[in-house]
Amino acid sequence: MNNLLKKGKQNAIILASLIVLIIIFAALNPNFLEKYNVVSMAQSLAPYAIMSLGVTFVIATGGIDLSIGTVCIAAATVAGKLFMNGWDIWTTIPVMIFIGTLFGLINGLLVAKLKLPAFIATLGTMMFARGLSAIIVSIPNIFYPTGTWFNSVFSNFNGFPVGFFWVIGFALICAYLMYKCKIGRYILSIGSNEEATRLSGINTDMYKLMAYVISGLGAGIAAIFWAASFTTVASATGNGMELDAIAGVYIGGTSAAGGIASISGSVIGSAMLVVIRSGLNFVLAKFNLDVNSTYVTYVLTGIIVVVAVLMDVIKNKNANKVKSRKKA
């Protein structure tokens, strides 16, 4: 109960910061809250948030998955190429899911079975996936359909941001997996102390592998929403997406050292990044500042990630201090 309250309190802080950000942007430029922008934010949230949800499982084990961004794009590219070669649009969905899961499986095998450091293994697959999609895209770009059932189901139905509700749905499934299912329980145990978990008779390699599979699956599903929302894949599209998704996870309160994860935090964290990206556009436009909003977004995101994690570190330190004093 105590833990639950604490978790709730932490979520409340992040949610409050998100609301404050929205208020600030709206105050600086009221157009920010125009319906079309809210819808656009809600629909672009989907791919990022779904990726964040997936990678939360890996980060909870104390690992990292750098490949999710390029894997997402690779999945969208391969499936898009098939679509342009005449495959029916619905067939792209299982293809994207399959490719994401396949990469997740490869990452999992490299890290859990072959004991490669997660950073290096997923750096490798990240580069591999980026190269793969660049080769396939070349020229011409890949175009997904617009205004079809595909877009209505996964992105925007008559101005209604469907993607947002998908995110809520996936978040509920992830929360179940993380908190109420054996797999999540063991993933968090591995993140707290992998060796102690193994010595408790738990097949840690298998559960670690599954965390990477979930992360890859997330990237594959994210690809569906990405394709439905953005519809065009060019050669450098989506570079750095993984960093946004991972930053969202850290902002959301999942511990980089593993063992502690917040599913709702990951959603709110990625929402915060979407709001910042869009809000800065409006603010810069309002004040006629001739700066690329993407770069300013990076500056601000960088600061927020460091501050969020720093607050976590300080809080933990203080908590420890109080407790040890009590004991003495």
């Binding site: 707290s192 060796e195 102690a196 978990t197 063992g259």
Partner: peptide
Amino acid sequence: KRYGLLLIKS
């Protein structure tokens, strides 16, 4: 601490 406990768990 190393081989038995999940220190940050209940």
